[in-house]
Design a protein around this nucleic acid. Structure first.
Lengths: 116, 116
DNA sequence: TTGTAATATAACTGTAAAGTTATATTACAA
DNA sequence: TTGTAATATAACTTTACAGTTATATTACAA
């Protein structure tokens, strides 16, 4: 039967689904940045940026490295691995179901043939 | 340099990030269902279910097949392919950056050695 | 043709989250 | 020790969206 399936954390998805946060994440792809650098590049206010970073941080998408009075934010790789794994298994599951459907149809055909 | 990168559609992500909608999507993994069947299984009201299905439909995550006065909703495979591809490229991009960083550090070391 | 089942949609309410403004905290330099 | 730059956070306003209630639409069966 169709195998067990790990659900994807929807709060983590929500964190990524907000456009400004997605923009932050894409910025950080190229390396760690401070709050100020992020705010400048995306033309967001500092408190706004901090708030978004907190959401990303609470959901394990970024981590902080304090350095003097600056704070460097960088991406954690795990969430992206989790998402990739989820999408992959999801598709496998769908394909498998279609295969099973094929088998079922085939089975019906064979049955009919045997009864001719 | 780091290659071009296709952004992920955040509205599509938002559609998936709502818990009830994620539940609907996971239900539909196992095959098409009518609105009523989904509403029953998830214990959602009919209008509520229709509303969520509209969001999923507007974002290309499901498609409808009317049959008499029922409407069968089924998953479209594309969004999941897109998400997988996005997560994969994202990770590749990050790894590549780290490799470049390694190269850079190595370069600094060589330089220092030559200057000894 | 009337009644009913399945679904969509409009109109509304409540709440959560985005975004702003003002203030607190921390580290450092003059 | 005072001033300043970088950041966080509290308090607030506004907006978006989840969820409900009531009604409209469609297909079919009696």
């Amino acid at each position: 039967m169709l195998g067990k399936f790990k659900s994807l954390d929807t709060s983590m998805l929500s964190a990524l689904a907000e456009p400004n946060r997605m923009a932050i994440v894409e910025l950080l792809r190229d390396g760690p940045l401070t709050v100020g650098e992020i705010a400048n590049q995306l033309e967001l206010s500092q408190p706004h940026t901090s708030k978004h970073l907190k959401v990303l941080s609470d959901n394990g998408i970024v981590e902080v490295k304090p350095e003097a009075n600056r704070r460097y934010y960088k991406l954690r790789p795990e969430p992206f691995q989790v998402i990739e794994y989820w999408a992959t298994s999801f598709q496998k599951h769908m394909e498998k179901r279609l295969d099973n459907l094929d088998d079922y149809v085939q089975e019906l055909k064979n049955k009919r043939k045997r009864e001719e």
